[in-house]
Design a protein around this nucleic acid. Structure first.
Lengths: 244, 244
DNA sequence: ACGTTTAGCGTCATGTTGACGATAATAGCG
DNA sequence: CGCTATTATCGTCAACATGACGCTAAACGT
């Protein structure tokens, strides 16, 4: 039997919403390979340490946050030979959605760390195959907002419907009708529950405060699909539905 | 820097539909650990081999099938210390949905291999943590049938709407109304396209043959949810003025 | 020819969705 | 103190989607 010796690491896609933008925590590498390049935070899995534990430990080291402060899940595993010039490295990536807490400084043990707007990361900018990992994480986050209540993971314990809507608009890069959005989130069983309090954010009528509800799946889901046009019962295309 | 030495393997959750049941390919282990127990097929990742390649190779070795014959995707990675008594083993699991081709015999290089109905696998019956991996694979398959056209991966190149409905009914363990199902799948843009041919399966009127369409996402999705009702004012009285 | 069986279309009541009007409740300003 | 701008929340309506189910079509066996 061939004994296959490999190094196993975890990488983290930490997402939060700051300054009305979806931001990802990146580390500035100080040493080769890829010196001075930005990379996802991560590190080796210690002997006797579970994969999720290792990821949680890295999360704590980088942000001072616990996984329970937001949402935390395994993303995918990357092991293409040559993805790390130092040798065969298999990386288990984790995805975290975090509230914009006054993080105790993102950087601690690295040359430099910073929240960077995800939209500004240009392809090829990150070290290793972290572009791909980040893209996978973003797509996962976008998709999960549709059918899970995970948008609340970006929010503090108490939030308004407008706060929640801002999360969707930021992550999906769309505009949503405030009235329809309000109807849908308050109508989805177990998504959010009122705390009783109200706040005035900036201007306008005070808004109710909510906390996350017990649901784990959204019913009905909040679809981001633009044109659900699919009824071609007869010839004579009604709309300009582009099924290209 | 701690060099973390770990063995990396791939395990496969191979699903198909045979004899009106969702079946999974299992291998009868001949050697310790877990001798004489059923386990998911799998093996070590070879040096210089990509993870997906290793999984595809195992798939070929076990079934003689190529990944393109059905659907193939990474499922999740399992690395809890102690999950393999031989040492630290991290396993990347893959999920495949395969048509019921006259497989060139499932077993080839193992003590014994067999398609087993997934519903008959009792908890604790499988070696290692393969129960968990199988459960994750089944849940993934069930979920993906909702919003992707992957049900066609269980079908041969040409199939009828009834064949497709049988896939859904088998995987979801539900009964679906043939008329509503027909309307929905033929109405979902790009899900299936008619080939022009017809067949007579057993009795009754001949059915049109279809092939899979170009869509990668179902629109609208086929939800398995029973009752989207949302007006229970129970503990936690969510909405105080919904409707009704 | 007739009954049985399955395919595929049609109808209807209800629920969901997007578009958007209307009202409520606050702050700022003259 | 009104007036206006702004945001929150409720309401209305048409289009679409869904489940329940009737009905016809096209094959088979006897």
């Amino acid at each position: 039997m061939t004994l296959n010796v490999v190094s196993v690491t975890v990488d983290l896609v930490l997402l939060t919403i700051r300054q009305a933008a979806l931001q990802v925590l990146l580390i500035r590498r100080g040493i080769p390979p890829y010196p001075d390049r930005w990379a996802l935070p991560g590190g080796f899995v210690l002997p006797g340490e579970d994969l999720g534990e290792a990821a949680a430990r890295e999360l704590r080291e980088e942000t001072g946050l616990d996984p329970q402060h937001g949402h935390f899940e395994q993303l995918a595993t990357y092991g293409t030979p040559g993805r790390d010039p130092r040798g065969r490295v298999v990386t288990v990536a984790y995805l975290a959605l975090l509230p914009d807490l006054p993080s105790p400084v993102p950087g601690s043990d690295a040359a430099g760390a910073a929240w960077r707007p995800a939209a500004e990361i240009t392809p090829g900018e990150l070290a290793f195959d972290h572009d791909r990992i980040l893209a996978d994480g973003l797509e996962r986050a976008r998709a999960k907002l549709e059918y899970t209540p995970l948008a609340t993971a970006f929010c503090p314990p108490e939030f308004t419907v407008a706060d929640l809507r801002a999360v969707y608009e930021t992550v999906w890069r769309t505009r949503l009708d405030p009235r329809n959005f309000h109807r849908k989130v308050t109508g989805a069983e177990g998504f959010i529950e009122p705390t009783g309090g109200t706040v005035i954010r900036d201007r306008g009528r005070p808004a109710q405060l909510f906390r996350r509800g017990p649901a784990t799946l959204l019913h009905p889901p909040l679809l981001r699909q633009p044109a659900p046009q699919a009824q071609s019962s007869r010839v004579g295309g009604t709309s300009r539905s582009s099924d290209l």
